[in-house]
Design a protein around this nucleic acid. Structure first.
Lengths: 229, 229
DNA sequence: CGCGAGCTTGACGTTGTTCAACTAGAGTGG
DNA sequence: CCACTCTAGTTGAACAACGTCAAGCTCGCG
């Protein structure tokens, strides 16, 4: 991690909700004192178990949000794309992070002291409502994860995940920024089974793979596999 | 379900956050028009996939919050004890319930039209903050569920669940209001394995069972089993 | 050229599910 | 009062799904 600037929000290219909620109040704006940090691929942005001291906004790049478990077994809950609140789930009532976030490509993150944001959202309805909305969406995603992990077998989960990744990248053909092991961690299977599924699906002409290049050839079938589990 | 009364909140024995936030504003209080309904054991209180039209508060009894999956396989996320917001996770940004809630003993529930509550929390910081807090706690529980279901094997999950149930009942000795099948649904295992674990743990003198009566004999060991997974 | 990280494949073992059969208690109707 | 049926609980054995282990492979990089 490398801090490179303490940008004034007014000059910043990413207008976050916190900014827009106080854009017309110069004295509050000045109090934000945002700090922009740059992370390289693989860098940890926040660590499960450490104190939540800042609100973090992912500005560029992308990151994985994951739970660190025992035996080096992680579970990746979802991928963050800018602009995204990184610590959102822990804003409200948690003293320490209940998960970790790591960059999966070079990324920049905006830090604002948490107590400043808290003071803001206690005073500002609009802001709290917006945060709430984002919060609700995160919850939906996690609920979906619970269902998926427990009701589908690995082919169904793998198919679902391919669709998710292609949506993340906005195209049926995309470049995977994750290793096979990380793909496994997204759907709670072993690295070996992740590999096997890539080859299986390739043989069945559902996808085409070339190293990290993935192309979905038969989306309807993929959706069907995902649905039936 | 049987509606029995449209109680004025002022006369109600359970003072919920919605009430306290507007207790001093008689005209708003009058607009709440709460409806109290009674549910028998096994009755559905709200159904996954149906529209969220009311805010629901569990006043007496208890209920299970669960996801209905395919093949008659449900997952019980947690048990609700009064006072508890039933639809909380769906208040903010979901048109339909993403889960179902059913009474596990005779219960009564307070219904308030959702649009009334929404109008309230948009105007009232305090209320929104309180709701948020409860919201955050629900999220923590679900996060814990994800970890538990994916990182522990069934003995660990079963031990964890026994501890949870005893905490719910506030005593090491308690009367189970759930069937073996439902115990299985709490930790995503089959009914048969739930039975096997009850007998296993009994033989190992960790618990004593007599039908639905459960007593925890060795809590430290139970906690250890839960931790190591 | 050699090393290491990521990837791939096969063989094998474990975990937990499914199936089937049996038991006990609680209603229900003749 | 006695079959009867239904539900909940229980147990064993067979089976399937998935993880683990071990070995080899490829490619980029020093």
């Amino acid at each position: 991690m490398k801090f490179t600037s303490r940008n004034e929000c007014a000059n910043c290219s990413v207008k976050c909700d916190v900014f827009t909620s106080v854009a017309d109040q110069p004295e509050i704006l000045a109090a934000l004192k945002p700090l922009h940090a740059h992370f390289k691929k693989h860098d940890l942005i926040c660590r499960q178990g450490t104190k939540v001291t800042h609100a973090l906004l992912l500005m560029t790049g992308s990151a994985k949000l994951f739970i660190e478990g025992l035996n080096n077994r992680n579970i990746i809950l979802y991928i963050l794309k800018p602009p995204a609140y990184i610590g959102l789930l822990c804003f409200f009532n948690t003293p320490v992070y209940s998960y970790s976030v790591a960059a999966i490509e070079d990324s920049s993150v905006c830090f604002i002291e948490l107590y400043v944001v808290k003071k803001l959202y206690i005073q500002n309805h609009e802001l709290l409502l917006t945060l709430n909305d984002a919060f609700g969406k995160s919850v939906s995603r996690i609920m979906g994860k619970v269902i998926s992990l427990n009701q589908k077998q690995i082919r169904g989960r793998f198919a679902e995940n391919l669709i998710y990744l292609s949506e993340c990248n906005g195209s049926l053909k995309f470049n995977l920024k994750l290793t096979r092991k990380e793909i496994g961690e997204m759907i709670a299977i072993s690295e070996e089974n992740a590999v096997r599924l890539f080859t299986e699906f390739s043989k069945e002409q559902i996808i085409r793979t070339n190293g990290k290049e993935i192309e979905i050839l038969n989306l309807p079938l993929l959706m069907k596999i995902s649905e039936v589990g």
